[in-house]
Design a protein around this nucleic acid. Structure first.
Lengths: 147, 147
DNA sequence: CCTGATATGACAATATGTTGTCATTATGAA
DNA sequence: TTCATAATGACAACATATTGTCATATCAGG
Protein backbone atom coordinates (compact mmCIF):
# COMPACT_ATOMS: atom_id res chain seq x y z
CA UNK A 1 0.00 0.00 0.00
CA UNK A 2 1.36 3.40 -0.92
CA UNK A 3 -0.98 4.71 1.74
CA UNK A 4 1.08 3.18 4.52
CA UNK A 5 4.24 4.95 3.45
CA UNK A 6 2.29 8.15 3.10
CA UNK A 7 0.65 7.79 6.51
CA UNK A 8 4.03 7.28 8.15
CA UNK A 9 5.31 10.33 6.30
CA UNK A 10 2.39 12.42 7.55
CA UNK A 11 2.75 11.31 11.16
CA UNK A 12 6.45 12.12 11.12
CA UNK A 13 5.78 15.51 9.56
CA UNK A 14 3.28 16.40 12.29
CA UNK A 15 5.63 15.39 15.08
CA UNK A 16 8.53 17.23 13.45
CA UNK A 17 6.46 20.40 13.26
CA UNK A 18 5.83 20.24 16.99
CA UNK A 19 9.55 20.10 17.65
CA UNK A 20 10.27 22.89 15.16
CA UNK A 21 7.70 25.16 16.78
CA UNK A 22 9.22 24.47 20.18
CA UNK A 23 12.67 25.24 18.79
CA UNK A 24 11.37 28.47 17.28
CA UNK A 25 9.91 29.48 20.62
CA UNK A 26 13.29 28.91 22.24
CA UNK A 27 15.02 31.01 19.57
CA UNK A 28 12.53 33.85 20.03
CA UNK A 29 12.47 33.64 23.82
CA UNK A 30 15.60 35.76 24.50
CA UNK A 31 13.88 38.56 22.57
CA UNK A 32 10.72 38.12 24.64
CA UNK A 33 8.83 36.77 21.65
CA UNK A 34 7.34 33.51 20.35
CA UNK A 35 7.28 31.74 16.99
CA UNK A 36 3.94 33.28 16.14
CA UNK A 37 5.01 36.84 16.99
CA UNK A 38 8.26 36.35 15.12
CA UNK A 39 6.29 35.46 11.99
CA UNK A 40 4.26 38.66 12.27
CA UNK A 41 7.34 40.80 12.92
CA UNK A 42 9.03 39.34 9.83
CA UNK A 43 5.95 40.10 7.76
CA UNK A 44 5.83 43.63 9.17
CA UNK A 45 9.41 44.24 8.05
CA UNK A 46 8.43 43.47 4.45
CA UNK A 47 6.00 46.35 4.82
CA UNK A 48 3.12 47.53 2.70
CA UNK A 49 0.76 44.85 3.94
CA UNK A 50 -2.42 45.05 6.01
CA UNK A 51 -3.25 42.56 8.74
CA UNK A 52 -5.51 40.65 6.39
CA UNK A 53 -2.79 40.45 3.76
CA UNK A 54 -0.28 39.17 6.30
CA UNK A 55 -2.76 36.51 7.39
CA UNK A 56 -3.14 35.30 3.83
CA UNK A 57 0.63 35.21 3.37
CA UNK A 58 1.11 33.14 6.51
CA UNK A 59 -1.83 30.86 5.78
CA UNK A 60 -3.54 31.83 9.06
CA UNK A 61 -6.96 33.16 9.94
CA UNK A 62 -7.28 36.92 9.71
CA UNK A 63 -8.57 37.18 13.27
CA UNK A 64 -5.63 35.39 14.82
CA UNK A 65 -3.10 37.65 13.14
CA UNK A 66 -5.18 40.67 14.14
CA UNK A 67 -4.91 39.68 17.79
CA UNK A 68 -1.14 39.20 17.59
CA UNK A 69 -0.71 42.46 15.70
CA UNK A 70 -2.75 44.36 18.29
CA UNK A 71 -0.51 43.00 21.06
CA UNK A 72 2.67 43.83 19.15
CA UNK A 73 1.33 47.31 18.45
CA UNK A 74 0.57 47.85 22.14
CA UNK A 75 4.17 46.87 22.91
CA UNK A 76 5.52 49.28 20.32
CA UNK A 77 7.14 46.66 18.09
CA UNK A 78 4.95 47.41 15.11
CA UNK A 79 2.86 50.43 14.17
CA UNK A 80 -0.24 50.92 12.07
CA UNK A 81 0.17 53.42 9.25
CA UNK A 82 -2.62 55.00 7.27
CA UNK A 83 -3.32 53.24 4.02
CA UNK A 84 -4.09 55.65 1.20
CA UNK A 85 -5.71 52.73 -0.64
CA UNK A 86 -8.06 51.70 2.13
CA UNK A 87 -9.44 53.70 5.04
CA UNK A 88 -9.93 50.74 7.40
CA UNK A 89 -7.08 48.42 6.44
CA UNK A 90 -4.08 50.11 8.05
CA UNK A 91 -0.61 49.11 6.87
CA UNK A 92 1.61 47.25 9.32
CA UNK A 93 5.07 48.74 9.78
CA UNK A 94 8.00 47.52 11.89
CA UNK A 95 9.20 50.06 14.47
CA UNK A 96 12.84 50.52 15.46
CA UNK A 97 12.20 48.55 18.63
CA UNK A 98 10.61 45.80 16.59
CA UNK A 99 13.55 45.71 14.20
CA UNK A 100 15.93 45.36 17.12
CA UNK A 101 13.96 42.43 18.56
CA UNK A 102 13.72 40.77 15.17
CA UNK A 103 17.47 41.14 14.68
CA UNK A 104 18.22 39.36 17.94
CA UNK A 105 16.00 36.47 16.92
CA UNK A 106 17.41 36.15 13.43
CA UNK A 107 21.01 36.05 14.61
CA UNK A 108 20.12 33.15 16.89
CA UNK A 109 18.12 31.51 14.12
CA UNK A 110 21.01 31.67 11.66
CA UNK A 111 23.37 29.92 14.06
CA UNK A 112 20.76 27.31 14.88
CA UNK A 113 20.05 26.54 11.23
CA UNK A 114 23.74 26.35 10.37
CA UNK A 115 24.36 23.91 13.21
CA UNK A 116 21.53 21.57 12.29
CA UNK A 117 22.01 21.96 8.56
CA UNK A 118 25.63 20.85 8.84
CA UNK A 119 24.44 17.31 9.55
CA UNK A 120 22.83 17.08 6.12
CA UNK A 121 23.79 17.58 2.52
CA UNK A 122 21.92 20.35 0.72
CA UNK A 123 20.69 17.68 -1.70
CA UNK A 124 19.08 15.70 1.10
CA UNK A 125 17.33 18.74 2.50
CA UNK A 126 16.19 19.95 -0.90
CA UNK A 127 14.87 16.52 -1.88
CA UNK A 128 12.92 16.23 1.35
CA UNK A 129 11.63 19.76 0.95
CA UNK A 130 10.54 19.03 -2.61
CA UNK A 131 8.47 16.05 -1.47
CA UNK A 132 6.90 18.12 1.32
CA UNK A 133 6.12 20.90 -1.14
CA UNK A 134 4.46 18.48 -3.57
CA UNK A 135 2.32 17.07 -0.78
CA UNK A 136 1.39 20.59 0.24
CA UNK A 137 0.37 21.48 -3.30
CA UNK A 138 -1.86 18.43 -3.48
CA UNK A 139 -3.44 19.28 -0.15
CA UNK A 140 -4.04 22.87 -1.23
CA UNK A 141 -5.70 21.67 -4.41
CA UNK A 142 -7.91 19.35 -2.39
CA UNK A 143 -8.86 22.07 0.07
CA UNK A 144 -10.16 24.48 -2.53
CA UNK A 145 -11.90 21.66 -4.36
CA UNK A 146 -14.05 19.02 -2.75
CA UNK A 147 -12.44 19.10 0.65
CA UNK B 1 25.32 28.17 3.86
CA UNK B 2 23.80 24.87 4.93
CA UNK B 3 21.65 26.98 7.19
CA UNK B 4 19.72 28.43 4.27
CA UNK B 5 18.75 25.01 2.96
CA UNK B 6 17.81 23.98 6.47
CA UNK B 7 15.75 27.10 7.09
CA UNK B 8 13.82 26.55 3.89
CA UNK B 9 13.26 22.94 4.94
CA UNK B 10 11.95 24.04 8.34
CA UNK B 11 9.58 26.65 6.92
CA UNK B 12 8.17 24.14 4.46
CA UNK B 13 7.73 21.56 7.22
CA UNK B 14 5.79 24.01 9.37
CA UNK B 15 3.48 25.01 6.54
CA UNK B 16 2.97 21.37 5.55
CA UNK B 17 1.98 20.50 9.10
CA UNK B 18 -0.71 23.15 9.03
CA UNK B 19 -2.20 21.62 5.90
CA UNK B 20 -1.93 18.09 7.30
CA UNK B 21 -3.71 19.07 10.49
CA UNK B 22 -6.46 20.69 8.45
CA UNK B 23 -6.74 17.53 6.34
CA UNK B 24 -6.89 15.40 9.48
CA UNK B 25 -9.68 17.55 10.87
CA UNK B 26 -11.63 17.04 7.65
CA UNK B 27 -11.11 13.26 7.84
CA UNK B 28 -12.26 13.17 11.46
CA UNK B 29 -15.17 15.56 10.98
CA UNK B 30 -17.72 13.00 9.68
CA UNK B 31 -17.17 11.09 12.93
CA UNK B 32 -17.67 14.25 14.97
CA UNK B 33 -14.02 14.32 15.98
CA UNK B 34 -10.85 16.33 15.35
CA UNK B 35 -7.20 15.48 14.70
CA UNK B 36 -6.36 15.80 18.38
CA UNK B 37 -9.21 13.56 19.55
CA UNK B 38 -8.38 11.03 16.86
CA UNK B 39 -4.84 10.79 18.21
CA UNK B 40 -6.13 10.06 21.71
CA UNK B 41 -8.66 7.50 20.45
CA UNK B 42 -5.91 5.70 18.54
CA UNK B 43 -3.74 5.64 21.65
CA UNK B 44 -6.67 4.35 23.71
CA UNK B 45 -7.13 1.45 21.32
CA UNK B 46 -3.55 0.33 21.97
CA UNK B 47 -4.64 0.04 25.58
CA UNK B 48 -2.69 -0.41 28.77
CA UNK B 49 -1.62 3.22 28.95
CA UNK B 50 -2.48 5.98 31.41
CA UNK B 51 -3.15 9.55 30.34
CA UNK B 52 0.40 10.53 31.25
CA UNK B 53 1.84 7.68 29.19
CA UNK B 54 -0.27 8.65 26.19
CA UNK B 55 0.94 12.22 26.50
CA UNK B 56 4.55 11.09 26.43
CA UNK B 57 3.87 8.89 23.40
CA UNK B 58 2.28 11.77 21.50
CA UNK B 59 4.90 14.29 22.60
CA UNK B 60 2.28 16.51 24.22
CA UNK B 61 1.83 17.99 27.66
CA UNK B 62 0.15 15.70 30.16
CA UNK B 63 -2.47 18.30 31.00
CA UNK B 64 -3.61 18.82 27.44
CA UNK B 65 -4.16 15.11 26.89
CA UNK B 66 -5.95 14.90 30.23
CA UNK B 67 -8.43 17.54 29.10
CA UNK B 68 -9.12 15.75 25.80
CA UNK B 69 -9.42 12.39 27.57
CA UNK B 70 -11.91 13.80 30.07
CA UNK B 71 -14.07 15.09 27.22
CA UNK B 72 -13.90 11.79 25.35
CA UNK B 73 -14.74 9.94 28.57
CA UNK B 74 -17.77 12.18 29.15
CA UNK B 75 -18.92 11.34 25.62
CA UNK B 76 -18.49 7.63 26.25
CA UNK B 77 -15.81 7.06 23.60
CA UNK B 78 -13.16 6.01 26.08
CA UNK B 79 -13.35 4.69 29.64
CA UNK B 80 -11.02 4.79 32.61
CA UNK B 81 -10.16 1.39 34.02
CA UNK B 82 -8.55 0.69 37.37
CA UNK B 83 -4.82 0.24 37.18
CA UNK B 84 -3.54 -2.50 39.47
CA UNK B 85 -0.09 -0.92 39.21
CA UNK B 86 -1.14 2.57 40.25
CA UNK B 87 -4.13 3.75 42.23
CA UNK B 88 -4.39 7.21 40.67
CA UNK B 89 -3.21 6.59 37.10
CA UNK B 90 -6.24 4.93 35.54
CA UNK B 91 -5.78 3.03 32.30
CA UNK B 92 -7.45 4.44 29.18
CA UNK B 93 -9.61 1.99 27.27
CA UNK B 94 -11.53 2.43 24.01
CA UNK B 95 -15.26 1.76 24.34
CA UNK B 96 -17.37 0.13 21.62
CA UNK B 97 -18.71 3.54 20.66
CA UNK B 98 -15.18 4.87 20.48
CA UNK B 99 -14.04 1.97 18.32
CA UNK B 100 -16.93 2.62 15.94
CA UNK B 101 -15.99 6.29 15.62
CA UNK B 102 -12.33 5.46 15.14
CA UNK B 103 -13.23 2.93 12.46
CA UNK B 104 -15.12 5.54 10.46
CA UNK B 105 -12.15 7.87 10.60
CA UNK B 106 -9.60 5.25 9.67
CA UNK B 107 -11.53 4.07 6.63
CA UNK B 108 -11.55 7.64 5.36
CA UNK B 109 -7.91 8.07 6.29
CA UNK B 110 -6.86 4.95 4.38
CA UNK B 111 -8.49 6.15 1.19
CA UNK B 112 -7.00 9.60 1.61
CA UNK B 113 -3.49 8.27 2.19
CA UNK B 114 -3.73 5.88 -0.74
CA UNK B 115 -4.83 8.68 -3.05
CA UNK B 116 -2.06 11.04 -2.05
CA UNK B 117 0.54 8.31 -1.72
CA UNK B 118 -0.06 7.17 -5.27
CA UNK B 119 1.61 10.35 -6.52
CA UNK B 120 4.92 9.31 -4.93
CA UNK B 121 7.22 6.33 -4.91
CA UNK B 122 7.67 4.65 -1.54
CA UNK B 123 11.38 5.45 -1.83
CA UNK B 124 10.67 9.17 -2.11
CA UNK B 125 8.39 9.15 0.90
CA UNK B 126 10.74 7.04 2.97
CA UNK B 127 13.74 9.20 2.11
CA UNK B 128 11.87 12.36 3.06
CA UNK B 129 10.62 10.73 6.23
CA UNK B 130 14.16 9.64 7.14
CA UNK B 131 15.44 13.21 6.85
CA UNK B 132 12.55 14.50 8.97
CA UNK B 133 13.21 11.81 11.57
CA UNK B 134 16.91 12.69 11.75
CA UNK B 135 16.06 16.36 12.23
CA UNK B 136 13.60 15.39 14.94
CA UNK B 137 16.20 13.31 16.74
CA UNK B 138 18.64 16.22 16.71
CA UNK B 139 15.96 18.55 18.04
CA UNK B 140 15.03 16.10 20.79
CA UNK B 141 18.68 15.81 21.79
CA UNK B 142 18.94 19.58 21.90
CA UNK B 143 15.77 19.93 23.98
CA UNK B 144 16.89 17.63 26.74
CA UNK B 145 20.38 19.15 26.70
CA UNK B 146 21.08 22.85 26.72
CA UNK B 147 18.38 23.68 24.17
C1' DC C 1 -25.55 57.55 -8.35
C1' DC C 2 -27.32 52.90 -6.86
C1' DT C 3 -26.64 48.09 -5.82
C1' DG C 4 -24.72 43.82 -4.79
C1' DA C 5 -20.44 41.39 -3.86
C1' DT C 6 -16.28 41.48 -1.41
C1' DA C 7 -12.83 42.99 2.12
C1' DT C 8 -11.87 44.41 6.60
C1' DG C 9 -11.76 44.98 11.53
C1' DA C 10 -14.23 43.98 15.91
C1' DC C 11 -16.19 40.76 18.92
C1' DA C 12 -17.47 36.23 20.85
C1' DA C 13 -17.25 31.28 21.44
C1' DT C 14 -14.61 27.38 21.12
C1' DA C 15 -10.50 24.04 20.45
C1' DT C 16 -5.83 23.01 21.23
C1' DG C 17 -1.81 23.24 23.77
C1' DT C 18 1.64 25.14 27.17
C1' DT C 19 3.39 26.37 31.81
C1' DG C 20 2.86 26.62 36.67
C1' DT C 21 1.10 25.04 41.13
C1' DC C 22 -0.78 21.86 44.41
C1' DA C 23 -2.00 17.54 46.93
C1' DT C 24 -1.70 12.76 46.62
C1' DT C 25 0.44 8.44 45.36
C1' DA C 26 4.41 5.46 44.09
C1' DT C 27 9.13 4.42 44.19
C1' DG C 28 13.61 3.74 45.84
C1' DA C 29 17.42 4.49 49.01
C1' DA C 30 19.06 4.54 53.71
C1' DT D 1 10.13 1.79 58.33
C1' DT D 2 11.25 6.36 57.08
C1' DC D 3 12.15 9.91 54.09
C1' DA D 4 13.35 12.28 49.82
C1' DT D 5 12.15 12.11 45.02
C1' DA D 6 9.38 11.37 41.10
C1' DA D 7 4.92 10.59 38.93
C1' DT D 8 0.14 11.65 38.56
C1' DG D 9 -4.23 14.05 38.27
C1' DA D 10 -6.66 18.45 39.29
C1' DC D 11 -6.93 23.19 38.66
C1' DA D 12 -5.79 27.78 36.88
C1' DA D 13 -3.76 31.15 33.74
C1' DC D 14 -2.29 32.05 29.40
C1' DA D 15 -0.91 31.69 24.14
C1' DT D 16 -2.29 30.29 19.75
C1' DA D 17 -5.62 29.58 16.29
C1' DT D 18 -10.20 28.54 14.26
C1' DT D 19 -15.08 29.46 13.07
C1' DG D 20 -18.96 32.38 13.14
C1' DT D 21 -21.26 36.85 13.21
C1' DC D 22 -21.74 41.71 12.58
C1' DA D 23 -21.15 46.54 10.88
C1' DT D 24 -18.68 49.22 7.93
C1' DA D 25 -15.76 50.26 3.91
C1' DT D 26 -14.39 49.39 -0.79
C1' DC D 27 -15.13 48.10 -5.40
C1' DA D 28 -17.28 46.63 -9.89
C1' DG D 29 -21.25 47.04 -12.94
C1' DG D 30 -25.25 48.88 -14.30
Amino acid sequence: MEGDAFSAFAITALRLAGHLTAAGDQLAKPAGQTSARWQVLAAARRGGMSVAQIARTLGLARQGVQRLADVLESEGLIAYADNPQHQRAKLVRLTEDGAARLGVIEIAQAGWADGLGAAFTPAELDAARAVMARVMEMLEAGETAGG
